[in-house]
Design a protein around this nucleic acid. Structure first.
Lengths: 207, 207
DNA sequence: ACAGCTTGTTGTCGTCCTGTCAATAGTGGG
DNA sequence: CCCACTATTGACAGGACGACAACAAGCTGT
């Protein structure tokens, strides 16, 4: 009779375990509001002791911030595929690429950026602001406008504002189904073209 | 020696007490994230027993939903002051009115709509969706477009999307100070004019 | 003025959640 | 094969939330 010394738990690399917990947390935080998700739930579903969460992330809040950080990280566009044509063409390409990203994340993306709520949270705000900034910079470069040109700050600001419309339009498309992808594509392309080609120059003259 | 029988607590009208608690809750939820605000805090600052909160709002979550509902309620535009001129003029007027509203709420408004986070909360989402819808309807009427015209649903959808840019632009102006009110005014007016006058007609032809 | 009654308000109790920490047990290296 | 390292556990203490029964403020009718 072989004495089965089956271990009660496996010892993993810190990064692996960390990732494991983070994965479950992303799912759960995407399903219910913050307060409704207990660290006990996350631990049980991950199959680890609750204390391990605190060990890796410090606190429930720390884990939450990691989730947010992970979810809002937007991939960088492959700039080699950007056409050399007119502004309108480059804008069209960029918008299409943006919608691809949104489409790929689907409902998960909505669970992140779809819900706004009351509750001043400086940390979360900072994370989201940085993500927006990166996305805006990325878009500006992809479209081919010089970031270093005068009034670059204003340019990025209005592109960030445009980002707000991208999110809202994405929600109309993905969650509510009130607009088709083609319609969203048309609206955003039109708007961004007008913003960069017509409004932005006038904005500089305004000062 | 007059026996001072000073009551330990005053008995208020339900509506008054409710309002009192709600006021403090709005302040506190605006300062810290949901989990950091305890009902004990709210009760202490309001000067009532903690149990009273549960009596009036059922649960902490119930109180929170009331706060959200209260904060996102957008006033209705006074339509008698709307000019009869061209689309561009009416748009300009509407945007100016919108910025007045935002300006009046200031930092409080930002505390509400500024923070997005992870956490799928159907209730909150519904409240915000309804508020967006009302704001969109309101804007459409103010600008003078017939709501009943064909493709009214699409029209409201893209106006709701535009609302996302209004919020984001408002944040740039109010919190970050990266845009002036005049700049925001110009951007939003331009964008909305293009959206309604040029993009929307093409959108209908798309189907 | 006073007793009675309505109901706004309190305080406590049980349950659950979170953060800390010492103890435990996988497991790779010597 | 065994030991040291450390990933992981389990228990403990403080605190938060929701439920509920008891209490008292203040109006009402006499």
């Amino acid at each position: 009779m072989s004495t089965e010394t089956e271990p009660r738990w496996r010892r993993l690399e810190p990064d692996q375990r960390r990732e494991q917990i983070l994965d479950r947390a992303i799912t759960l935080f995407g399903e219910r509001p913050y307060a409704e998700v207990s660290t006990t739930d996350i631990a049980r579903e991950t199959g680890v002791a609750r204390g391990l969460i605190n060990h890796y992330f410090g606190s429930k809040r720390g884990l939450y911030l990691e989730v947010v950080r992970r979810m809002v990280t937007v991939p960088v566009a492959d700039r080699s595929a950007v056409p050399d044509g007119s502004l309108a063409e480059r804008v069209e390409f960029s918008v299409d690429w943006l919608l691809d990203v949104i489409s790929a994340r689907g409902k998960t993306w909505v669970a992140v950026l779809g819900t706004e709520g009351v509750g001043n949270d400086p940390e979360v705000e900072r994370i989201l602001a940085e993500a927006d900034e990166r996305a805006a910079e990325n878009l500006v470069r992809t479209v081919g406008l010089r970031d270093a040109e005068p009034a670059g700050a204003e340019l990025r600001a209005i592109v960030r504002a445009f980002g707000g419309m991208v999110k809202a339009a994405g929600r109309e498309w993905i969650t509510h189904g009130t607009l088709t992808r083609e319609q969203v594509q048309l609206v955003l392309t039109d708007q961004l073209t007008a913003l960069l080609g017509s409004t932005f120059p006038r904005l500089q003259r305004l000062e």
